[in-house]
Amino acid sequence: MPILLIVVSVVLQACADGYLSGRLEFGDSLLFSCLAFVAATVLFGSLCLIRRARQGARPDRGAEQRGTVRKLIVLMNLATAVTFLGFFSALAWVPAALATSVQSGIGPLAVVCIALIRRESAPAAGRLAGALGLLGLSVLIAVRLNPEPGALSLPMVGGTLLVAVSGVSAALLARISRQLGAAGADPLWVTANRFHFTYLAAGALLLARGGVGGTGGADRIPLPLMALTALAAVALPLFLLQVGLQRAEPLLAMALLSTLPGITYLSQTVFGGPLDPVACALIGLLVLLAAACARQARTAAPARRVAAPA
């Protein structure tokens, strides 16, 4: 079930990224972030209140467990802000397929490196090779999608670095989500409380630059459609992803998420982008390697019993 939830979330996010690519300026990206994460907070916060009213008082988890969950949710707020603000802001300068290639390619390797730095375990040769392979294929896809030297402008380089940072932060999110799952945190409650730093930071940046500006253009997204996209293509898949992340090993989750570039690229072609056979072949190899890495992570992961959501 966690694998299916992550895969469905990947498909929905890829469709949204493909649609948004080239249609958002920097101010629009900040506005979209505000709309998406305020919508998620209000929607899932309301669902939490409705369920609490129906079920009554919940059993006390204990002071120590509550303290652990609160610390983890603060860390998740910080990591979420870095991950999503970095990614959506970078879409103003970097095509969605390139952005997702860099972000998802770094994710599996970041999971392995974080575990090594924390001395949790020495990475198996297969895991490290698989993570490096995913990163290498992601870089090749990124280069193929942007082959012209002129594309390496300062905004492009800056946007790519921003996406790389968001990829490392996404790996931290996978680890924190797994810890929240082990602590018995309810995914619905986590989704309702993980975006506060994100929409506050996006709103502050939007106000600091004087609101949404720019030339816009024929492809600019109308505000009502942007709000609908934010709710249906961001809030919902992020909840599905949160449930999956709390029940899956971080490396398995990041390996599955590395397939996001391929589906994003295909979604871009549906919305009018060109189709490159070489890029499609590279994406096919990446999907196969991601499946192999996910299977290896699932087989090698120690059996853990995750507490049922509160």
Score class of each variant (00 low, 15 high):
M1E: 12
L5K: 03
L12N: 14
Q13W: 06
Q13P: 00
Q13Y: 10
S21P: 01
R23N: 03
G27E: 05
F32N: 01
C34T: 09
L35D: 04
F37P: 00
A40F: 02
L43F: 15
L49T: 08
R51Y: 06
A53I: 08
R54I: 13
G56A: 09
R61N: 07
G62S: 13
A63M: 12
E64P: 00
R66I: 03
G67H: 05
L72K: 10
A79T: 12
G86M: 05
F87R: 10
L91G: 08
A92Y: 09
W93Q: 03
V94N: 10
A97G: 15
L98K: 08
Q103V: 06
I106E: 04
P108D: 06
C113H: 06
L116A: 14
R119K: 11
E120F: 05
G126F: 11
L135S: 05
G136F: 02
L154V: 14
V157Y: 06
G167E: 14
A170H: 12
L173P: 00
I176D: 03
I176T: 06
G181I: 01
A183W: 03
A185P: 01
L188A: 10
A201C: 14
A202N: 09
A202R: 03
A204D: 11
R209T: 11
G213C: 08
A218W: 09
R220E: 08
I221D: 02
I221H: 03
P222G: 12
L223H: 04
A227F: 03
A230E: 04
A233V: 02
A235R: 10
P237M: 04
F239N: 07
F239E: 04
L241W: 07
Q242C: 07
G244E: 06
R247N: 04
E249K: 08
P250G: 05
M254W: 05
P261C: 14
A281H: 05
L282N: 03
G284A: 10
L285T: 01
L289Q: 06
A290Y: 07
A290I: 02
A291H: 10
A297S: 13
A300I: 05
A308L: 10
P309R: 12
A310P: 04
